[in-house]
Design a protein around this nucleic acid. Structure first.
Lengths: 171, 171
DNA sequence: GCATTAAAGATAGATATCTAATATTAGATG
DNA sequence: CATCTAATATTAGATATCTATCTTTAATGC
């Protein structure tokens, strides 16, 4: 446990909340990746697989929207996934613009292997939290997410250019 | 509001928690970056500045530990920050290995500008949450973080190679 | 129906992160 | 005190993400 708990200098509680949220997100990510790698699936692939298990045959645009990722990101992930044989990309009904992604047998079968891993992570994370605490937690997170979305939209309305949020889920 | 709320197919509540945490983390990141960019400070720079404001003169290793980032990441960030005149890197007391980072006047002065921005984000995020709800939230997050840390250590103990957690704070 | 506009995807280039390998300095040990 | 080991920093290379731009196809308006 090398975790140095903000040693001597006190940290304002306000400040700490954002960090806690980021640390928790990081914990989830790492715990999940740890499990996914045993099946040779990356985190990014998991994201799109999960969406396709719910709604197969979405277009690249629809996928990137649902994943909250940009199209180039979806593009490269999907190309890779096609290479790996998880999906097949093709046009449908005479529309040559849209590239729809369809799960292959292999992609479908991954569901039974991978979904339990995600549930395992959730269970591990919530150990020791009562049902009520979990419910309250979800509610509080939902409120914060909405608050922060509004904040971003207000900013955008004021003409601020919103930059990408890069990798760090930590601090 | 293009947010398509998991349309028709129900999502298991368990699954949703991890996503909520990641979305909240993303919200915090974006909201903060939005503000930092008006001062031409990147998120990564903010991370190290914040640490140095608490403890000036830390070594690169100490900084990367506290930031939960790798040394190469800290290295490039610090080099850039030196270029920008936020810090000065130098050895101390005859130890030629350690590279310590010291805030310049400019780096110090940023504190008064940047810290209020972070508090603003926290305030925005917590709008509509009671003091108690906030306290419970912190507690629940702390529990999850600890749970997930233990999970990772268990995995490591079993000899699993822990991969990096890449950018996506989203899904 | 032809020309313009919009939609969707692909590509190029930048950034931040990671792992792995290398170099340098300090400390420990025979 | 010479050599080995550990600590620290640096460099190189890979990956995933982003923005911006370009290309292709569809839809719209005269």
């Amino acid at each position: 446990m090398k975790e140095k708990q903000t040693s001597h200098v006190p940290v304002r509680p306000d400040e700490r909340l954002a960090r806690l949220v980021r640390l928790a997100a990081r914990g989830f990510n790492r715990a999940l990746q740890l499990r996914l790698q045993t099946e040779n699936v990356t985190f990014g692939q998991w994201i799109f697989l999960r969406i396709l298990w719910q709604e197969d045959g979405l277009s690249q645009r629809e996928l990137s929207d649902r994943a909250h990722l940009t199209e180039p990101t979806a593009h490269t992930a999907l190309i890779k996934m096609e290479e790996l044989g998880f999906i097949e990309r093709r046009n449908v009904e005479g529309n040559k613009r849209r590239q729809h992604a369809f799960l292959t047998r292999k992609g479908l079968e991954l569901r039974d292997v991978l979904e339990p891993l995600a549930l395992e992570v959730n269970d591990a994370a919530m150990a020791g939290l009562s049902k009520k605490a979990q419910e309250d937690l979800r509610h509080a997170l939902a409120v914060m997410i909405r608050n922060l979305e509004n904040d971003e939209q207000d900013a955008a309305a004021r003409g601020v250019r919103v930059p990408p949020t890069k990798g760090n889920t930590e601090n």
